[in-house]
């Protein structure tokens, strides 16, 4: 491609249409390869080896993967995440959808105020969120415990075996509801105005318009947010990691698969096995997202 070279013209670098896309992609793609593709390949390589004090590093093929498949520490974590996701995602997205529809209806006071206020938790680092809720959950000094004591009621126990998962789910709802709400709200705002006029001419009430016209129209957006929520849920780490001291014994070192991979790598120095755990988790994420997309498409068809 002789004409594809950048030529110098009147003292200014002149880039032609055929080289331009590569030039624009270069910085991102270089970093993408260095910090995404390369580490992935490296981790995959690692996962095929095993390091022991006695034998050094040796190639073991799929042995690490076979071990993951029968490792209860891993699968307990996956099961926990499923429970967590089935609880947290519907509540979070249901609320986001409900409030987005309410805000979009125009039938509220202070629409902009609420929209921004609901979004603010997204700006709070998950570490800080976990920390703040950790204080609030405290049985003796947390304000909910204090309130219960004042009214001579039994103290709510947020940090016990049966309740802690819900408590963590609450933190995630608090953090990400507003973010999803903003996405839904933007999708709702993009619906042409005359549809509302048409539906009111058709005699539909505001509620009917919201549920039967607007909701189906933003379904594709909802499906995307569900997939992103599934991906996010399966990567749960910061919140339980930070709360491990509040509920010792309940949040163990393999509470979630990410937590487990972290422990394997940095506490036990088992990098090879940790890499295999991460890859299987990645596989679980891909399979769950894919199955969900299949189901969503079948319903849509």
């Amino acid at each position: 491609m002789p004409d594809a070279v950048a030529t110098r013209r009147r003292g200014r670098v002149y880039v032609t249409k055929s080289v331009a896309p590569y030039l624009f992609l270069l910085p991102f793609m270089a970093l993408f390869i260095a910090f995404l593709i390369a580490p992935l390949c490296y981790a995959f390589g690692l996962s095929l080896f095993k390091t022991t004090m006695v034998a050094g590093t040796q190639f073991v093929g799929a042995a690490n993967y076979l071990k993951v498949f029968t490792d209860p520490s891993f699968w307990d974590g996956v099961v926990l995440l499923f429970k967590f996701g089935l609880m947290q995602i519907p509540i979070m997205l249901g609320l986001a959808l409900l409030y987005a529809l309410i805000l979009d209806s125009g039938r509220v006071y202070g629409r902009n105020f609420f929209r921004i206020a609901f979004f603010i938790p997204y700006a709070v680092p998950s570490v800080i969120a976990a920390l703040l809720w950790g204080y609030l959950y405290g049985p003796s000094f947390g304000p909910f415990g204090q309130l219960a004591e004042f009214f001579h009621l039994p103290k709510p126990q947020f940090l016990l075996d049966g309740t802690i998962l819900g408590s963590i789910a609450n933190i995630a709802v608090w953090e990400f509801m507003g973010y999803n709400l903003i996405i839904y709200f933007a999708a709702l705002q993009a619906i042409p105005q005359d549809l509302e006029e048409a539906s009111s001419v058709d005699g539909a009430t505001g509620l009917q318009y919201a549920l039967r016209i607007k909701l189906p129209l933003i379904m594709p957006t909802v499906i995307v947010t569900i997939i992103f929520s599934i991906i996010g849920t399966l990567q749960l780490f910061s919140e339980p990691y930070l709360m491990r001291n509040l509920a010792p014994g309940i949040i163990n070192s393999h509470y979630t698969p990410n937590f487990y991979a972290y422990t394997l790598a940095f506490t036990n120095q088992q990098y090879n096995y940790s890499a295999a755990v991460s890859f299987v988790l990645g596989g679980v994420v891909a399979v769950v997202s894919y199955v969900f997309m299949l189901l969503a498409n079948r319903r849509a068809a």
Binding site: L25, M29, F32, F35, L36, I37, A38, P39, L40, Y42, A43, L46, F228, I231, L234, Q235, F237, P257, N258, A261, Y262, A265, Y271, S274, A275, V277, S278, F279, L281, G282, V285, A286, S289
Partner: peptide, 24 residues
Amino acid sequence: LSFALVLGAVMIPQTALVIPIFLL
């Protein structure tokens, strides 16, 4: 292909990346 790779990147668990990035 490259756009599909970029989109697929969101599915990768953080640990799968952060640990090998640390090692590299």
